[in-house]
Design a binder for these strands. Structure first.
Lengths: 342, 342
DNA sequence: ATCCTCCGGTAAATCGCTCGACAAGGCAAG
DNA sequence: CTTGCCTTGTCGAGCGATTTACCGGAGGAT
């Protein structure tokens, strides 16, 4: 079975090269009759136009680059799943394909992030892998490349982004715990992203300034990976350091679940002795015992929106983008009124 | 900043178009001196050759298509994470990029799976999304397209595959439980994949034929998604149906964890009353309480191996491929000697 | 009948790079 | 001094589409 080209289709259908091309691109210029006759041949051979040739001539690859963080086994992260599903959904519906990359040391070092766009392998880039050391992203400030941070921000750099509003989440979480009377709160923070820092700072700020009586916050770092394991260790550290705290707030659900696990292993009842709260509202949050109170982050929606935006940037419909999406409180069994609270 | 081409580099460096091309492809034909002078200009402009043009001229996209199943939020699945990480690792080291797709209804219906290869958008396809209804994959039997099933098999079709040996896993699991004296076993099976069926059949066969006394196996379907939720429901059904069983075997860890959850909710002690066992040995297996006994499936390795194979197929180094990778038993706290057992 | 629009289709110039065939120059051997 | 070979670089013909400008003919208006 020899490889066919548009030329073969043209010959067989009796029309010109250009006509076939126009048909393949649904150009209105072509009459229905011609269209049908050409398509019959296309179907007959199950012909699909060469995409490299297409890309070369049209100067567009119809491809989006998606860069995810280099966590050890990265996709285990539910967080990414939602995001990518959302992106895929939008991208596909617009005829775009997704090129997947992991932000490994090698990826950064070899400048793959700019190579992808410079070589036109991708028309735009959705970057989910940002952290506070991603200084190399400066290339994209005022560049002609279409670039967007997904669920991240980079204060001080002019970079497009679509993200959940982490400061708002911090506020919701703090208000929930404070409202339950908690005044000694342990915070397991993620400090390797700007959104993580925003969350921590805002959370502490709200606790300090609470009208009904300021609360103490002891915070520890939950580790680079925001993992269950990290949350487990962090809880241990927190409880050793401040044995009398009545609530633990973790910057994501996985760390919160790790913390709950430590508390269970050490015979501390949740929520009777210690309330625990997470962020993201991953599926598993409803499945642990007791159910984990959380802040709902609709990452699927962030994926959809990010993709919408990057496509608009590519089409030139917008010049830049900085969206913050709202979040909401989800109360389950893991948080309750502080023991000994008023 | 205007878009540069290889021609600009040629002009500026004083060499011909072809020379620059050869330099960029590390062709040995070119002397070090020339190479250096050309590369200086390339670096100066941070030039990256247009990949569409490259693909067109070289008839190779240096891209691999990876197709994952259409579970609701697909990447939440740890299973896939390992696989994709392994694939990415290999692919990248060989200069290949990864094009990601989800096997949605639309994907199947529009024949994207063949379009990707026919349009040369990808040089080969790694298909992780197979199930027993994937009949459309017949296109790839004896086709010129480079296609490989990842961690799946398709009895009756001549398709390349690299998979963990599910029958061997079934044997290991059965022998473990039987060795602990279990004679009434509930099986939560996955019946929408051939590997799932192989596992079920082999498990039952070993139980029936056990030398020290054949065991009864009651099996139920864990659902299409092999999820925690499915495992939970399946456990309920199983215990209602056969209240006196002493062990539950689930075809993957997530269903096993769901089952454990049901047992906990219904005050049945694990493993004292009911032993529970899973398959895959996902990270979470060590994190539940008690730790989940499982069969270790090194999916990362499957990813690596799959990628190796598809690259060999592409290069024509091999003509077909059917690899089964070994598995091993991991004993944790969730399985113990059957109560009332001999 | 003449002129002017549309309408539907086509010719041909790209797009930016690869690679096999060819050429020039240097050097060793005959 | 040829001849022949080796090394290094260049020519130029594609690769398979897109897209702009052009063109012939059918109607409609004058």
């Amino acid at each position: 079975m020899k490889r066919r080209t548009i030329k073969d289709i043209a010959k067989e259908s009796g029309f010109s090269l250009s006509t076939v091309s126009l048909v393949l691109n649904n150009h209105p210029r072509i009459s229905q009759a011609t269209r049908d006759r050409v398509m019959a041949v296309v179907k007959k051979y199950n012909f699909f136009p060469n995409s490299a040739a297409r890309g070369l001539a049209s100067k567009s690859s119809k491809t989006l680059s998606v860069v995810v963080p280099n966590l050890t086994r990265v996709f285990s992260d539910i967080y990414l799943g939602e995001l990518i599903s959302g992106i895929y959904e939008r991208a596909t519906s617009q005829g775009y394909k997704i090129l997947l990359d992991i932000a490994t040391a090698q990826f950064i070092k070899s400048q793959e992030y700019v190579k992808l766009l410079a070589s036109r392998r991708a028309d735009g880039m959705l970057f989910i892998a940002s952290d506070i050391h991603a200084d190399y992203l400066s290339v994209f400030e005022d560049s002609p490349y279409k670039f967007l941070l997904v669920n991240h921000v980079y204060p001080g750099k002019k970079l497009n982004y679509v993200s959940v509003d982490y400061a708002a989440s911090a506020r919701l979480a703090a208000e929930h715990l404070l409202g339950l009377g908690h005044r000694k709160i342990g915070l397991i923070a993620g400090t390797n992203t700007f959104t993580g820092l925003q969350f921590r700072d805002e959370f502490i700020k709200v606790c300090k300034g609470w009208p009904a009586g300021s609360a103490q916050v002891a915070w520890v770092d939950g580790g680079e990976e925001w993992s269950q394991r990290g949350g487990y260790a962090a809880a241990a550290k927190l409880m050793a350091q401040t044995p009398d705290l009545t609530a633990i707030m973790a910057a994501n659900d996985r760390m919160a679940i790790g913390a709950m696990r430590w508390l269970a292993d050490n015979r501390r009842d949740v929520p009777e002795e210690v309330s625990v709260m997470g962020v993201d509202d991953i599926q598993l949050a409803a499945y642990v015992n007791p159910g984990l109170s959380s802040i709902r982050h609709d990452l699927y929606q962030v994926g959809i929106e990010s993709c919408n935006r990057i496509l608009q940037l590519i089409k030139g419909e917008i010049a830049d983008c900085s969206d913050l999406l709202p979040t909401s409180l989800v109360v389950r069994g893991s948080t309750t009124r502080a023991r000994g609270g008023k």
